[in-house]
Simulated assay, not measured.
Amino acid sequence: MHAVIPYVIASLLFALGVYGVLRRRNAIMVLMAVELMLNAINLILVAADATVRATLTGVQAESWAYPVPEPKSGAIFALFVIVLAAAEVGVGLAIVLQYYRLHRDVVIDEVGLDQHDHEKQVTG
């Protein structure tokens, strides 16, 4: 497989995620778009690790400017991004569910950042 293909696919996934964050009004769809961007980053990390390893095959380790990288370091970083994404989903869904319980709506354009908005709605 050519080395450019994963980068192109990852850039398309990331662009689709950015479009979803900027254009969607539903909070759940925005969270899904952020997950799509994080998965694109994972693809780039793994592809970059494989590309660098394939490029450096046969090069003496003493001639590198940096210490010898750990094997599969791109996959290790991708694992950290997956953990971050899981935490983001947990916290994001908790916030969205709490907002839905209070307002019966999850449209992002109408979210008020002022604490007094909720007090005005409760008191009438």
Score class of each variant (00 low, 15 high):
L97V: 02
A47D: 06
S63P: 03
V83I: 15
A87Q: 07
A94T: 12
R53M: 11
V21Q: 02
N42H: 08
R101W: 01
Q60K: 05
Q60M: 04
R23Q: 11
K120G: 06
Q115R: 13
V106Y: 10
P67D: 05
R25G: 15
H103Y: 12
V30Q: 01
A48N: 03
L102N: 08
L56E: 11
N26H: 10
T57Q: 14
H2G: 00
A47R: 07
A78F: 08
A15P: 02
V18G: 04
M32H: 08
R101K: 11
Y99A: 09
S63A: 11
A10K: 06
H116I: 11
V122G: 11
V34N: 12
R23I: 01
E62Q: 09
T51C: 08
L13Q: 04
T51N: 13
Y99L: 07
A10F: 07
T51I: 02
G112I: 01
A94M: 09
A40P: 01
H118Q: 14
M29Q: 08
E62T: 10
A94Q: 08
E119I: 14
L93S: 12
I5M: 02
Q121I: 14
I9Y: 01
A47W: 05
G124W: 09
N39E: 03
L12F: 07
H2E: 04
T51S: 15
D105N: 14
V59C: 06
A75G: 15
M37R: 00
A50G: 10
V89R: 14
G90P: 12
G17V: 02
A10M: 06
I28S: 08
L113D: 10
L36R: 00
L102M: 09
P69L: 01
M29V: 01
S73H: 04
N39D: 03
L102W: 07
K72F: 03
A86F: 15
S73M: 05
S63I: 08
Y100P: 05
A61Q: 08
D49Q: 09
Y99C: 02
I9K: 02
L36H: 00
A15G: 13
E62D: 09
A65K: 05
V91E: 12
P67V: 04
E110Y: 01
L16E: 02
I5T: 12
E88G: 15
L93V: 15
A40C: 05
L102F: 08
E110Q: 13
S11G: 07
G74Y: 00
F14S: 06
A54K: 14
Q121D: 14
D117L: 11
S11Q: 03
A50I: 09
L45N: 04
I76Q: 13
G112D: 13
R53S: 15
P67K: 05
M1K: 04
I9G: 03
D105S: 14
Y19M: 12
R101A: 12
I95Y: 11
A75E: 14
Y7N: 02
Y7S: 08
V46N: 00
A48P: 00
V8P: 04
A3Q: 07
D117S: 13
A33F: 02
Q98T: 11
A27H: 03
G58M: 10
